[in-house]
Write a protein that binds this DNA or RNA. Structure first.
Lengths: 219, 219
DNA sequence: TCACGTTTCAAACAAATGTTTATAACTGGA
DNA sequence: TCCAGTTATAAACATTTGTTTGAAACGTGA
């Protein structure tokens, strides 16, 4: 189909350019010329640039959330109501994230997009992602709660965001960091390498000793 | 002085707007109108928008690097050539970061700007920061290296960036996160609270067990 | 007071942006 | 074949962008 071809070509080109330069820094003309598509095609098929951005995310997040929900279903079934260990939860999350874009060989694009979703202004994007995909995140954190009963709720809340920051920050700045790492340590780092490196760090961080009591004030 | 007043007003306004919306999303007209300054003033005093962005960073990073260097001098002198414990290095870093913007009460702006420096495209910014302030970071990582001899160089490199991500992400999204935490856990979180919570997490993350060997491939 | 360098200001500039329009080309079923 | 409906295309549109210009206002030392 011709329209499908155009739509797909726009999405393929847009996601790469967005990941490389950000949303505001990527013009529709850059996208359409690189995709060999007429300028008006974006507004015709997507309506607006905002909608194009959301469509780029949906193409990744829709399959991801479905896979992740199914993986969590299986995990819960396997443990039959018992608490699921932290490592397995993290493993399942990482697995679902890694699976999705493997087909298009663009995991790094996916990660970079997630980073942009947080760091770029684009209020509409955060709202869209929260409303559309907030549910699966809520489900995941509820399971994490069961897996880490020793943590006070507020402490777990903050530590989850510490780790979320690690992941998003690292992947969204991946290109730059990779260049440095490659130059200094002479090894090419793949996203899978980073996930492997992240695993023990995240587990250790979640299980770190509690900070000194809230009331103990010192200079 | 009038020119100083104009320059300062531009910088004060620009840093807030940049932090809120990003660089590309903030126009010179928005800055100058909010700062009650003529549009041409930016190009007159700074030369270009790029230079303005760099100047915004310099106003934070210049005092910070100087303070941090002095603090590291003192720390090294105190240990007289002996290895400095990881905890003390982190403490010194945290202290220097917290000190600088305290005067202008804009720690969150500082943090958000640091986050943008990494996540936004703006190649010139990364180059500028690297060339201008790479030295102090190199010095710090060299000390961290001595404090964590058990870590392979590349592993330490990545863990440092994991933790950098935690800090920048958390503080740059502090406003939103604080609201949630306050609502859900009924406690007001100060920046110092977060630093206290971060300390054991960062230490545990740096001391986490090494990931399985690079060559061990599994499904 | 004068003159000179600095700073401000309103206006204009060229370029780039997202979007719309009107027309053409194509498509598949009657 | 012919005709609706869909898609593609080129052109134009109104804004917005960073930057430049030239003149006015200002400040300061002679």
């Amino acid at each position: 189909m011709a329209q499908n071809d155009t739509v797909t070509r726009i999405l393929d080109t847009a996601e790469v350019l967005f990941a490389e330069r950000g949303f505001a820094e990527t013009s529709l003309r850059t996208i359409t010329s690189k995709a060999k598509v007429n300028l008006a095609a974006v507004n015709y098929h997507f309506g607006s640039k905002k909608s194009l951005i959301q469509a780029v995310f949906a193409r990744y997040l829709d399959p991801f959330t479905e896979r992740f929900h199914r993986a969590l279903d299986a995990l819960e079934a396997r443990h039959g109501g018992q608490a699921i260990p932290l490592e397995e939860l993290l493993e399942t999350l990482a697995g679902s994230v890694l699976e999705v874009p493997a087909e298009r060989n663009s995991l790094k694009v996916f990660m970079r997009l997630l980073g942009l979703a947080y760091s770029q202004a684009q209020g509409h994007l955060r709202r869209y992602i929260q409303e559309e995909y907030g549910g699966v995140f809520t489900r995941f954190t509820a399971l994490i709660r069961v897996a880490t009963p020793e943590l006070p709720d507020s402490e777990r809340f903050w530590r989850l965001h510490f780790m979320l920051g690690s992941v998003i920050f690292t992947f969204s700045g991946l290109e730059a960091l990779r260049d440095i790492a490659e130059k200094d340590y002479d090894e090419h780092v793949t996203v899978r390498d980073l996930v492997r490196r992240l695993r023990p760090v995240v587990v250790a961080a979640m299980q770190a000793p509690l900070p000194p009591s809230l009331n103990a004030q010192e200079a």
